[in-house]
């Protein structure tokens, strides 16, 4: 127990790093994923093709390989964001593909009659999407997006293999330094991740129950 308590500063800093990655990469992925999701349902063939190609490529590539590409590959091209940003870019690119699919399936979950009614009063594609379908898709989209964000929270642990001091990185250090307390350290760090996952699920449940709101 002491190993964890004595090093609480390190552990908390680690989770701070984990949360920073989660929040920044999460926001980027939500924004890009929503845009890409509307590409996937657009009447323009080329946009649909872009959306499909992106999702196929990035969902089937392991995140580790994406990390190698961004983390070691970008500096080779003389693009040199900081370590944190390179990790964030890799996480965001990967997560975007899953957000895109969640948004698309949410849009498809809205009854056909709604969009037909909107069209019959003369709305165009953008208006149908913005004023009628997306606000209703919002609720259907909350649970899948929550699971994507939960996966993102867990995926941030990959940065430990790339020299960023997140919670998992701290766990490795503490286990190496305190061979007597390995189980306490493992369970303590695990509990931190479980807490993050639980908070995301609770927020999702509240949002899902609340009356549909504007999805702007």
């Amino acid at each position: 127990m002491d190993a964890l308590w004595d090093n609480r500063q390190l552990v908390l800093e680690g989770f701070g790093q984990t949360l920073a990655l989660l929040v920044v990469a999460g926001f980027i992925a939500l924004a890009l994923g929503t845009v890409l999701g509307s590409f996937r349902v657009s009447p323009v063939l080329a946009l649909r093709a872009i959306g499909t190609a992106y999702v196929t490529c990035f969902r089937n590539t392991p995140l580790v390989v994406l990390f190698l590409l961004v983390y070691f590959g970008l500096p080779e091209l003389d693009v040199r964001p900081s370590q944190f940003w390179r990790a964030t870019i890799a996480l965001a690119l990967y997560t975007t593909a899953f957000i895109c699919e969640a948004v698309r399936s949410g849009i498809n979950a809205v009854p056909t009659g709604q969009a037909e009614a909107a069209r019959s009063v003369g709305m165009g594609f953008g208006q149908v999407l913005r004023l009628v379908v997306l606000p209703q898709a919002f609720r259907a989209v909350v649970p899948p997006i929550a699971s994507v964000l939960i996966a993102l929270a867990k995926n941030t642990s990959l940065v430990a293999g790339f020299g960023i001091a997140d919670a998992t990185f701290r766990m490795r250090g503490l286990i190496n330094d305190n061979p007597g307390d390995v189980y306490v350290i493992f369970l303590g760090i695990a509990l931190g991740y479980i807490l993050i996952v639980a908070v995301i699920s609770v927020v999702a449940r509240v949002l899902e129950r609340s009356p549909a709101r504007s999805a702007s």
Partner: peptide, 18 residues
């Protein structure tokens, strides 16, 4: 519930270290 909520990378790392 435990193993679904814990990051897999952390799990693999912990198993290997311990």
């Amino acid at each position: 519930e435990f193993f679904r909520a814990v990051p897999l990378l952390m799990l693999i790392l912990a198993i290997y270290l311990i």
